[in-house]
Nucleic acid binder design. Sequence first.
DNA 1: TATTAAATGAGAATGATTTTCAATTAGCTC
DNA 2: GAGCTAATTGAAAATCATTCTCATTTAATA
Lengths: 148, 148
Amino acid sequence: MMKDFECTQESYAREVLREKGLKSTTQRLAVVHVLHTSRKSLSVGEIHDGVKEMLGATGLATIYRTLEMFEDLGIVKRLHFPDGGRGYAFSQGEHVHHMVCVDCRGVFDFPECPVESFDYASVEKQGFRVKDHFVQLFGQCGKCAEAA
Amino acid sequence: MMKDFECTQESYAREVLREKGLKSTTQRLAVVHVLHTSRKSLSVGEIHDGVKEMLGATGLATIYRTLEMFEDLGIVKRLHFPDGGRGYAFSQGEHVHHMVCVDCRGVFDFPECPVESFDYASVEKQGFRVKDHFVQLFGQCGKCAEAA
DNA sequence: TATTAAATGAGAATGATTTTCAATTAGCTC
DNA sequence: GAGCTAATTGAAAATCATTCTCATTTAATA
């Protein structure tokens, strides 16, 4: 049992896992904590490192398994960088719409969803049924812009 | 020399390659043709298969190299599927905004860019400088919806 | 047609991700 | 709290995609 890292997201994760009859293992809660602590989107390796820092040696496969499961459960979101790199961030709602700094890979929220206000009519005219959308803005965050 | 597959996109590709002092090889033109022929976004493997069908044995590395170069040249766009899969489609403008059918992986254009009309002010208030954006809508195309 | 830099092919190397399976653990029940 | 059981983990092997290397070939130009 691990009580050291309780946070809203942790108890949320616990609840979701319980509902599905899945176990709230130390490793899974550590992944939640690492993701929650960071304001950045993290690569699988970074998450692995963070978890190892908390728990000591931890299998990489477990990290992959946890992340995949968390994505299915809607706890985390998987991001795709232009170079194909995989990143994960705590899910902040139903859709992915993040600003991602191409320098520090930091992830920033943006208040409204540009697609939300978009007129789907023209799209649906073509018979296409939109089920989900994925929006990422790329650029430089304030800090990185200054530093440059 | 290969004259069998001439199309607008082929001559465009030739031109871009020429401008950069790059060669319009049989393989590169075949990649253009395969992509142009298909209304779908294609995986690297599918493109490789298409090219092999046209030319016979062709190195996979060449396909990767060509696709990477074409992306740099703005000739093709790289798409990212929710499962992390890589896809390529002929570039239809400056930005990527496609509808992608999750069943057949077909790619459909959508007329306006939802992000274009988006008010960046709130984002830039946070000091973030938007340089590019990536929008993908996921759903079912008309055919797949019928078939289901 | 000769020249030459650019490009290709084949396979080796790399790196990321997934699988396997024996050992461990969380979440029950008593 | 101890015992039970299915779920989970760790470690290593296996797989898969992607990149690299370098000898050979080719496109573009003269």
